[in-house]
Amino acid sequence: MTTDTEASGPGAAAAAVTRMMAGPVRADEIDLSIGEPDQALPGVLVEAAVRSLRDGRTGYTPKLGLPELRDLVAADVEAGTGYRPDVEDVVITVGGTGAVAVALAAACAPGGSVLVPDPAWPNYRVLAERLGIGVLTYPQGESGDGFLDLARIRSGLRAGARLVAVNSPSNPTGAVASAAALRSLVALVREFGAYVLSDEAYESVVFAGGRAPSPLADGGVDVTFAARTFSKTYSMTGLRVGALISPPRFRTAAAALHGTTAGCAPVTAQLTAIEALSSLPGRADQLSATYLARYRTAVQILGPWAPGTPVETLGGFYLWLDARPAGHTSAEVCAALRDRGIVTSSGLVYSATDGFVRVALTAPDDVLARALTLIREELDRLAARAC
Rank of each mutant, 00 (worst) to 15 (best):
M1L: 13
T2L: 07
T3E: 05
D4L: 09
A7V: 10
P10N: 06
P10F: 07
A12M: 13
A12R: 15
A13D: 07
R19E: 15
M20W: 14
P24M: 03
D31K: 08
S33V: 00
G35S: 14
E36K: 11
A40H: 10
L41Q: 11
L41D: 06
P42V: 00
G43Q: 12
L45V: 09
V46L: 15
E47W: 04
R51D: 15
G56T: 06
R57I: 06
T58F: 11
Y60D: 15
K63I: 07
L64N: 14
L64Q: 14
L64C: 10
G65N: 05
L66D: 08
D71H: 08
L72F: 08
V73Q: 06
A79H: 12
V90L: 07
I92H: 06
T97W: 13
V102E: 05
V102C: 12
L104V: 07
C108W: 03
G111T: 08
P117M: 03
A120S: 14
P122N: 14
R125V: 10
L127K: 06
R130V: 13
L131P: 11
L131M: 15
G132S: 11
Y138T: 02
G141I: 08
G144H: 04
G144R: 09
D145P: 05
G146P: 10
G146V: 04
F147W: 08
L148R: 11
L148K: 03
D149C: 11
R152A: 15
R154V: 01
G156A: 05
V166S: 00
P172N: 05
P172S: 08
T173V: 07
A179S: 13
L185R: 04
V189G: 07
R190E: 15
G193M: 13
Y195N: 03
E200L: 14
A201Q: 07
E203G: 00
F207C: 08
A208L: 12
G210H: 12
P213C: 14
S214E: 01
P215C: 01
P215K: 01
G219E: 04
G219K: 07
A226Q: 12
T229S: 15
K232L: 15
L244C: 11
S246A: 14
A254C: 12
T260S: 15
A262K: 13
A265K: 09
T268H: 13
A269Q: 06
S279V: 00
S279A: 11
S279M: 00
R283N: 01
D285W: 00
D285I: 04
Q286R: 15
T290M: 12
Y295Q: 08
R296K: 09
L302Y: 01
G308S: 14
T309M: 06
T309I: 02
V311A: 13
W320S: 02
W320D: 05
L321G: 04
D322Q: 02
A326M: 06
H328Y: 13
T329C: 02
T329L: 04
V333A: 01
C334F: 03
A335H: 10
R338G: 02
R340I: 05
R340F: 01
G347R: 03
A352L: 03
A352W: 05
T353C: 13
R358D: 03
V359W: 00
L361T: 01
T362E: 06
A363R: 15
L368E: 02
L374K: 13
E377M: 10
E378A: 10
E378N: 05
